[in-house]
């Protein structure tokens, strides 16, 4: 089974803040990490390989330093890592990103399944996975929490998956090749191993430019990105109210008083 996992290197968002006085971002000491949701996709890729055999390839689009995210994936046991990096990709939005990743995956050859995290924590868009599925004309299942089995149906391999929806979950049969985005309920990512870390240090990362993947200029980077960020600003904070002091029963009295109309 040829398993592709798409990952993104993101800043550890819990640490990003806007300085309210200067209205600029405070990013000091913010580390770059693999998007946490993608770690579940990597783990599921490795588990699919353990269940059905094959090869796991991890792919990302980003600046040269995104290589560290790929090496981290290799330390977990991924077989091959591809970095799509080119000045021409700069400024890509989700449309252009999904196009570039789709072209990269095309160049990799035969694919059985593409795994993505449900969304990235910096943008929270959840758009790139479904976008890739359309560019490559594949069926998809989003928010997958379980890949139950893989069976043959009239000569085609089919995954039975469970996907999370608001009121519970859906069971779907998705023929391969397909694109799945996964939620954290699907597994518990493994820790890297020392041997994996040693291997990742020496591993060769495949680096492809826009030309290497035959990406059309109009579809990548700023030209291929219909959306633009017009401005960024600090979220408006709600104002604080009253602090209730005194003995617990006094506070309870007071609360009952103010809420009696509502409860």
């Amino acid at each position: 089974m040829n398993i592709i996992v798409c990952i993104k290197q993101v800043p550890d968002t819990t640490e990003v803040r806007i300085n309210p006085e200067t209205n600029t971002l405070i990013r000091d000491g913010v580390a770059s990490i693999i998007n946490p949701f993608d770690t579940y996709a990597i783990e599921e890729g490795l588990r699919l390989k353990e269940r059905f055999g094959g090869k796991v390839t991890v792919i990302t689009m980003g600046p040269p330093q995104a290589e560290t995210a790929l090496r981290e994936a290799v330390s977990l046991g991924v077989d091959e890592a591809v970095l799509l990096s080119d000045r021409a990709f700069a400024g890509s939005d989700t449309l252009a990103t999904s196009y570039a990743l789709a072209m990269g995956i095309k160049k990799l050859g035969e694919v059985d399944v593409i795994l993505c995290g449900k969304q990235a924590i910096d943008g929270d868009t959840a758009q790139v996975g479904p976008g890739i599925a359309i560019w490559l004309d594949m069926p998809q299942a989003t928010y997958v929490k379980k890949i139950e089995d893989c069976k043959e149906e009239s000569g085609k391999k089919v995954f039975r998956v469970h996907r999370m929806v608001e009121e519970g979950h859906e069971v779907l049969d998705v023929p391969l090749p397909c694109m799945l985005t996964v939620v954290k309920e699907i597994n518990e990512p493994r820790m890297p191993s020392l041997k994996g870390m040693m291997r990742s240090k020496k591993a060769e990362i495949i680096k492809w430019s826009a030309a290497d993947i035959q990406a059309e200029e109009e579809n990548i980077g700023l030209d291929g990105s219909p959306t633009q960020v017009m401005r960024i600003f600090s979220p408006e904070q709600r104002k604080g109210g009253e602090m209730l002091h005194g003995e617990v029963h006094e506070i309870a009295d007071r609360l009952q008083d103010v809420l009696k109309e509502l409860i």
Partner: peptide
């Protein structure tokens, strides 16, 4: 929603237009 966020990125790529999430 889980439906909206699964459906609309597909439509946006089909139409090659911009989409802003959430």
């Amino acid at each position: 929603t889980s439906i909206g966020r699964s459906l609309i990125p597909r439509v946006a790529v089909n139409l090659k237009t911009g989409l802003t999430a959430d």
